[in-house]
Design a protein around this nucleic acid. Structure first.
Lengths: 263, 263
DNA sequence: CGTTCGTTTGACGGATATCAATGATTGTGG
DNA sequence: CCACAATCATTGATATCCGTCAAACGAACG
């Protein structure tokens, strides 16, 4: 079996560790769905009340159970949100991209964070206090509506992922998750799509409710079949169509040995 | 094995099929989280813009894929919300109780319903158009905030159920789901808690991502062990503590044969 | 009383978690 | 620049949970 390129093709984390220049912050704020309706002055006002902080790869941004007093807005980088499961494992519920908020639900009135956020790459994060956000929403109904839209959208996504986790085989779930990730943060590369984030097999496993070994086996199979390319902490899709077929239908193109749900 | 009472102990659906008197409507509206901040006159105004309709047991209230133009508010009865899964099965994502809203809060007018709602019992439902709701929210920021709170809470719940579905064995998931239902709509009865809703094994299966047969087997086991009592379309918990233990830990009280996740 | 729908139970096989060990990649320190 | 350590990934063997198929039974309703 030809072993081709295995070195990481991921663009090195561009931003310097703890830098986050003011123009970038303002730009991110202005384009964030939350604050879309605000005037320039108001954006500046928010920026001035927000704290900025950089995080190193693998660093925790907040922990489940700690007091939820802030809304976070990702300016650059990648963040993963993990939720503790019934057993001691974790479920990866979200991958955050620049411009998106996280920790928001909690900040909107609940007392503690229900999940833990980690920086997947070097990241720059804006932190806004719940009180400030509330203040802005009260003065600007448009912002409140935007927040509502955003939270609604999140709800939609969450229920989608219930769907993704619930039915189907491990293969289907992994395929579906890869496709979602590709849509969200894939970047064209050669003939395929490179996932621009350093996910381990374990991350993928906790997204799909399975184990690292099963993920590895599945990806190996697909790699042999030419559907994807993978390496240490990176993944690229070369045959999107085939993956979509795997995610949707059972597995072979034929009727297959009766659709199996689990077990 | 003694076969005890198997006839349904559920309180017959109290309300007459299609009746929903105005005082009841106003009361429900006034107490619904959404409209908590409104004056009496405004409640009346909303009531006048809302359409009322009764649904028979098993009747569909809206279908996935149809245009989402209304917000629904349950006045009386029980409603289940099903979401189509990747395979052709459905996932039961929510059970609605009086005072709660359902329908696409998310879409709020510009999309289609992502799920289907069925009346579990004879139910009375208020229907408010997205436009009206938007109008009210624009005029009353307090309402917008209340809606936001509600949606946030839903998001919280949805992510919890991701957690519930994702990890653990079938037994754990069923136990966890029963406990959630008991908290939501259990009613003290004798020495236990009677679940006040007519759930079939199939409903329970689609809540927990398993099959009717597995649910039946599990419940039979628990029935033999004296943890629950069941019958056709009803369930009662007699040993909540034991169920909680089952939901939380692996299975035996002892260290057990290593915690199994699945398979 | 018969029909229908929901529930129960059994047998069987397959998908997949688990255990265990090796191999590859990255980064570090000499 | 190379060797070492650490982390991540891969692969195999085995056990088992649980989904599937099949059939019978009980309750509810007309």
């Amino acid at each position: 079996m030809a072993r081709e390129r295995r070195s990481t093709p991921l663009a090195g984390s561009c931003a310097a560790p703890h830098s986050c220049p003011r123009p970038l912050r303002l730009d991110v704020l202005a384009h964030a769905p939350y604050f879309a309706g605000l005037s320039n002055d108001e954006i500046v006002a928010i920026d001035e009340r927000a704290k900025v902080r950089g995080y190193a790869e693998g660093e925790a941004i907040y922990h489940a159970g700690s007091a939820a007093e802030h809304l976070f807005l990702l300016a650059s980088g990648r963040v993963k949100v993990l939720r503790p499961a019934l057993d001691d494992s974790d479920v990866l519920v979200e991958v955050i991209t620049p411009g998106a908020t996280f920790g928001s639900v909690a900040a909107l009135g609940h007392s503690t964070y229900p999940d833990t956020a980690f920086a997947l790459t070097v990241s720059c994060v804006l932190r806004i206090s719940a009180a400030d956000l509330r203040h802005v929403m009260a003065r600007h109904p448009a912002v409140a509506m935007a927040v509502l839209d955003e939270v609604s959208h999140r709800l939609e996504e969450a229920q989608q992922s219930v769907r993704r986790l619930s039915g189907g085989t491990v293969e289907q779930r992994i395929a579906a998750s890869l496709l979602v990730l590709a849509d969200k943060l894939g970047e064209p590369r050669g003939d395929g799509v490179l996932l621009q984030l350093p996910l381990t097999r374990e991350d993928l496993a906790s997204m799909t409710g399975t184990t690292t070994e099963s993920v590895s086996r599945t990806l190996s199979k697909w790699r042999r079949a030419g559907l994807i390319e993978t390496g240490r902490r990176w993944t690229a899709l070369t045959d999107r169509t085939a993956l979509a077929a795997l995610a949707g239908a059972a597995h072979g193109p034929g009727p297959g040995p009766a659709r199996a749900r689990r077990g």
